[in-house]
């Protein structure tokens, strides 16, 4: 059997009619029915997006409210407010910037583009399946730092009230240590989950990617 000899014979293979209309007799009817099905799927998708819109609005409003309140609480209670204001404003700006970057990245990766060349398709698949992206990693670090700063207000209050410790740096250190502990635990828990559910697929995609670039000379 030579590949080129069989090449023409291969053209005898015919596609079946779309599964959803095995009762249909000709291709034309079959495609019409498939189109109807696809259009109804499109409508369903639009409806679900419309339904999700108010929820997105509420979630965004809540997040903004919590961010502003936590920021104001830091401003009002911290004794060395002016000393740390630049750091806090900087952190907040980085936080907002990273949130936008992450949103754009998720939006881009969320819609799979099957029309891309295979190499790009695999590259994006790697991004979708990898453990953690750099913007997400930075985002989690900055978000945790903001959380630690906010929590330090509470720790300082407790230290002052019950242990008579007035040095605010102690509260900040405890707060950062606590958040760092939670962060490390969360990191390993997420990594273990990723290993279970996505690592094998990730490796498979990487293998395909490597293979595609192999043989290039």
């Amino acid at each position: 059997m030579k590949i080129d000899d069989i090449k023409k014979q291969r053209f005898a293979i015919k596609a079946p009619h779309a599964k959803m209309e095995t009762t249909m007799n000709n291709t034309e009817d079959s495609i019409d029915s498939l189109i109807e099905k696809l259009k109804s799927e499109d409508t369903k998708l639009m409806h679900s997006l419309k339904r999700a819109l108010p929820l997105w609005g509420i979630a965004a409003g809540c997040s903004l409210f919590v961010t502003i309140v936590s920021f104001i609480s830091i401003m009002g209670t911290s004794a060395d407010f002016y000393a740390g204001i630049y750091l806090r404003v900087l952190l907040m700006l980085i936080f907002i910037g990273l949130t936008v970057a992450m949103y754009l990245q998720i939006k881009k990766l969320g819609t799979i583009d099957y029309t891309e060349p295979v190499i790009l398709f695999l590259r994006n698949a790697v991004k979708r399946y990898r453990f953690i992206s750099l913007p997400y990693f930075l985002f989690s670090i900055v978000a945790s730092s903001i959380l630690a700063l906010a929590a330090s207000v509470y720790f300082n209050d407790v230290l002052m009230r019950y242990f008579d410790v007035s040095d605010t740096s102690v509260g900040i250190i405890i707060s950062f240590a606590f958040v760092a502990l939670v962060y490390v635990f969360g990191y390993y828990a997420t990594k273990s989950e990723w290993k279970k559910s996505k690592a094998a697929i990730f490796e498979e995609i990487k293998k395909m990617q490597k293979e595609l670039l192999h043989d290039s000379e």
């Binding site: 099957y114 029309t115 295979v118 398709f121 559910s197 094998a200 697929i201 498979e204 395909m208």
Partner: peptide
């Protein structure tokens, strides 16, 4: 070209789903 890209990419995705 466009059709073949969609076809090959969908087939590769199918293999990934199988793995999952």
């Amino acid at each position: 070209t466009w059709i073949y890209r969609i076809t090959v990419n969908t087939c590769l995705s199918y293999l990934r789903t199988e793995q999952r």
